[in-house]
Design a protein around this nucleic acid. Structure first.
Lengths: 350, 350
DNA sequence: CTGTCGGCGGCGGGCCGACAA
DNA sequence: TTGTCGGCCCGCCGCCGACAG
């Protein structure tokens, strides 16, 4: 028998007896999930009211299946371009194969009288506070090579890792870090070399192989309030990384998404969607209060300057300014009066 | 840089410049596809008329997403339990990750007048003739171990591989075999040991790692009429092997499947489905002629004995006899008068 | 005939400091 | 401060025949 396969089947230290059970019942670490998702991703609060954009959802599915939307899709005249819903449930997940983070949301369209309820300020959505004791490093060729280990940036090691005992020569310790699935990984952390530097040696290459990391991907360590070390990854955005599903045609998926929303809207019943923050850059479920504020309380007009937040490679946030050059519907036939991307943002780089 | 990753990224010898292009434009080797699919899987002929069972399709999707069908799904009163369609296109595919074979079909529901056309005998579907010069072996622990190579059954080697030059000591040659994606794999074939036996040595472990084969999986070699060696795999049916998609909820997928079929039926337009022969044991697209013959020309009654074909582990076909114990609809509320699995086959093992 | 094992040789994984950017 | 490299050691990959079922 192939006992320690290099092909990702390597068991991390102290793997739980049943990973599926852990995935199903235990709550995914919220801090780590948000860190992997990035600073710009926030999830609406459970119980709050949100606006769901079928068109945006459709774009995400199109991006995930690498298929542009065909024109064969039937019209759903009863499905409005935006659906105001009660958010009954939000659960955070991570793909078992790729560790890609995504969220599952249970939505219920509201009937006209429920729409009249005043909204609470809390419904604006809680800000996604990134953890304080964490660092994120983009892997170099040396980091992912089999020739050596992982070079830890000095400040990062001092801030995030437990302090080394410098009376030892060389100073070294064992680190245990939990990933999104709750699996624990063991690394040897050593301070050596000339000049001295922090390194992760034994255990590192197993992690790289199992997660199939390549140069350009990023790793992320968090030291949380419970004195636990958490470990996440953010893969570099590689083109053509997703592959078409062989379960259902992309056309049927699009129809399913629309028909499910239309059916839920007509019967005021719950439906379930997946939100992949890193698969497509569009949030298609946003807090109702934020939407109302944006659409009704702000007067948008051509020539107005605006501000956008962008995530840089180092995961900091930068601001860009632009000028609005036009306002129109993207697809006026299918989605009349939709506010989805109705603001043309051409010129924002100028 | 990690030049030869063990995690399936190992490039086989003479890989095509663009695998995606090969996958898209070149036709998958039909012989190999059918061999991997197994002797009981046959595809209807392009241009023929077929019967499509939404209920069976639904079962496949349920099996692929590991989710039982929820009751939230709307009714499609205009969608009959079986849909007679023109089969416009059939393409054979293989999953890029797992090599799992599946077929894509383009169907168009027929209008009432087209239904009156007499059907041709050819529409019964061409029998799936398995290739003659082939062998299939279930991998042992030794075969998948890193300790050694692959032990080739003697008769298989003599029948399928090119003859060795027995004047050499030991007799040996290099074999090149193409997989479903058109990638070529190189193996050293040697006849040695005491007693003498055929072995694949150098190159074998790379193949095992890349395809992530484990003991219990099967490999399949074909020597075709063009004197090419073809190489396929059949994975052992492992429970819980498929994982839920994070693109679309399984509920939405079910709705999409039904809504797509209903829309196509009402407009007589084309729709696309995927058929995964090894994911679920149910053929939900069958030749019209076969269906007509089975339903109308055969009188099915309780107590009647019948015959079923089964695929054994060694891929031969065995026949079992049984007795029909009852006739009923599986889901009389949702699918009244459906012939899908309307024959209860309890007792067929007796 | 063929599955598994002990033997063993050699490649490459992986730990080290040197050096330079 | 940290990315890459030469040096080097040893663990395990993988080729061999020996056996036995």
């Amino acid at each position: 028998m192939r006992l320690s396969s290099p092909a990702g089947a390597v068991l991390p230290a102290q793997a739980p007896a049943s990973p599926e059970a852990a995935e199903e019942h235990k709550c995914l670490n919220s801090e780590l999930w948000h860190a992997c998702a990035g600073p710009l991703v926030s999830l609406p609060a459970v119980g709050s009211r949100v606006v769901y954009f079928p068109q945006g959802h459709s774009e995400q599915v199109a991006a995930s299946t690498n298929k542009e939307i065909e024109s064969q899709i039937p019209n759903y005249p009863n499905l409005p371009p935006q659906l105001i819903c009660q958010l009954h449930n939000v659960t955070m997940h991570a793909d078992a194969e790729t560790d890609e983070v995504y969220a599952q949301m249970t939505l219920q369209p509201l009937n006209p009288q429920e729409l009249k309820d005043p909204y609470l300020p809390a419904e604006l959505g809680t800000a996604n506070k990134q953890p304080t004791n964490y660092f994120c490093k983009t892997l170099t060729a040396s980091d992912t090579s089999t020739h050596g280990g992982f070079s830890v940036p000095r400040r990062a090691a001092e801030k995030v890792f437990p302090p080394l005992d410098f009376t030892m020569q060389p100073p070294a310790q064992e680190l245990f870090a939990k990933d999104l699935h709750g699996n624990e990984w063991k690394f040897r952390h050593i301070f050596r070399g000339q000049p001295k530097r922090h390194l992760l040696t034994t255990g590192w290459s197993v992690f790289v192989s199992a997660k199939r990391l390549v140069a350009g991907d990023s790793v992320l360590f968090i030291w949380n309030d419970n004195n636990q070390l958490l470990l996440g990854i953010r893969r570099a955005t590689r083109p053509q990384t997703v592959m078409p599903s062989s379960v259902l045609s992309s056309d049927s998926m699009h129809i399913g998404l629309l028909a499910a929303a239309a059916h839920a809207a007509s019967t005021n019943s719950r439906f379930t969607i997946f939100y992949n923050p890193r698969a497509s850059p569009c949030e298609f479920v946003i807090p109702l209060a934020k939407y109302v504020k944006a659409v009704y309380h702000t007067r948008i007009s051509v020539g107005m300057r605006f501000r956008m937040l962008f995530e840089t490679e180092e995961s900091s946030v930068r601001r860009y300014m632009g000028t609005i050059t036009g306002i129109s519907d993207l697809d006026a036939v299918r989605w009349p009066n939709s506010h989805w991307r109705s603001v043309k943002n051409a010129g924002w780089l100028g």
